Simulated scan of single mutants.
Amino acid sequence: MPVTNTYKDQLGREVSIPYPPRRIISLVPSQTELLYDLGLNEEVIGITKFCIHPDEWFRTKTRIGGTKTLHLEQILALQPDLVIANKEENTKEQVEYLMQHVPVWVSDIWQLGDVRNMIRNIGEITGKSERADEIAGNILFGFKGLIDEVQQQEEDLLRTAYFIWREPWMVAGGGTFISIMMRHCGLENVFEDMPRYPEIALEQLRTADCELILLSSEPYPFKEKHIAELQAVRPDVRIELVDGEMFSWYGSRLLKSVPYFRELRERLKNTDRIPRSD
């Protein structure tokens, strides 16, 4: 007889899941990549159209819609024994619909501690605890070194605006995983006092106490041509294109974030400091 275990997800819900699950669907790109790195190639049967890593899964696995536009009946037809979702990236109504029919484990990521717990929990659920503990441990070890380096620097954190969208212009505000990653990278989010992902007028950027602007590669694919658009508003500020996955993907991709952040910090060392207005 198949064994069914009960686990708590990161919303505090108790979820009964067959052990180990044999038919897994992931609704979150960063967690899809984690499942691959855990060695669950046969078990994962469905992913979203935004789950671009690894490429071989993107090309061969069944796609079940977008993170916020799930094909619900297609998911149920695949008869998953585990669906892995995320509170922020997926739509509440769609996830709650799936909960009525199949086991759904939901992550809720705010900081590195949540990442550690998510990775270890998914490892336990899928029978891959040893590999999950290794990944989580390496992530935390890498970030501890980076955070120590940032804390040892004598200068203030670089005052930064991180753009995620255009038309309307949107930035990462406070209470976001991106904002936490910025601080670990030695950057102070100038929109930290605004909620989540606010729209801003370019006039707000003109008056912001800002010395660096980062344009993310996702969800909006900022390119070189967009630099000039914002440089016209803030000719005094350095503008850089950055890999958004390194700031916002909270699975095993974080293993690559630390060396990326170190390289970015080296590039930014030549940024001229703007005296604080206060």
Score class of each variant (00 low, 15 high):
residue 178 I to E: 10
residue 94 Q to C: 11
residue 66 G to I: 01
residue 28 V to R: 00
residue 230 L to K: 11
residue 173 G to M: 01
residue 157 L to W: 11
residue 185 C to I: 00
residue 167 E to Q: 11
residue 48 T to E: 01
residue 96 E to G: 08
residue 78 L to V: 04
residue 146 L to M: 10
residue 62 T to E: 15
residue 10 Q to D: 06
residue 205 L to C: 10
residue 179 S to M: 05
residue 1 M to G: 15
residue 21 P to K: 06
residue 275 P to Q: 10
residue 102 V to P: 00
residue 59 R to M: 11
residue 90 N to V: 08
residue 238 R to T: 10
residue 19 Y to N: 05
residue 80 P to I: 03
residue 103 P to E: 04
residue 140 L to V: 08
residue 48 T to K: 03
residue 237 V to Y: 06
residue 109 I to F: 10
residue 34 L to N: 08
residue 72 L to I: 12
residue 1 M to V: 12
residue 4 T to D: 13
residue 16 S to E: 14
residue 154 E to S: 13
residue 186 G to D: 01
residue 103 P to H: 11
residue 148 D to Y: 12
residue 52 I to H: 07
residue 129 S to Y: 07
residue 211 E to K: 10
residue 28 V to S: 04
residue 128 K to C: 11
residue 40 L to P: 04
residue 75 I to C: 05
residue 160 T to S: 01
residue 174 G to T: 01
residue 216 S to D: 13
residue 173 G to Q: 06
residue 52 I to M: 06
residue 168 P to T: 04
residue 267 R to L: 09
residue 141 F to P: 00
residue 117 N to P: 01
residue 215 L to C: 05
residue 54 P to D: 06
residue 256 K to V: 00
residue 73 E to F: 05
residue 271 T to M: 04
residue 136 A to T: 02
residue 177 F to C: 03
residue 56 E to G: 04
residue 258 V to H: 02
residue 199 E to A: 12
residue 236 D to V: 10
residue 50 F to M: 07
residue 187 L to G: 03
residue 210 C to L: 14
residue 266 E to M: 11
residue 182 M to H: 01
residue 15 V to P: 07
residue 33 E to T: 05
residue 109 I to H: 06
residue 258 V to W: 00
residue 20 P to M: 03
residue 271 T to Q: 05
residue 193 D to F: 10
residue 234 R to D: 09
residue 43 E to H: 02
residue 130 E to M: 11
residue 194 M to R: 15
residue 222 F to Q: 04
residue 172 A to Q: 02
residue 250 Y to S: 11
residue 211 E to Y: 10
residue 1 M to W: 13
residue 150 V to M: 10
residue 228 A to L: 14
residue 97 Y to G: 08
residue 47 I to T: 03
residue 208 A to Q: 07
residue 12 G to D: 09
residue 133 D to W: 12
residue 244 G to I: 05
residue 213 I to H: 05
residue 212 L to A: 11
residue 161 A to N: 09
residue 207 T to P: 03
residue 112 L to C: 11
residue 2 P to R: 15
residue 125 I to R: 00
residue 163 F to I: 00
residue 62 T to Y: 09
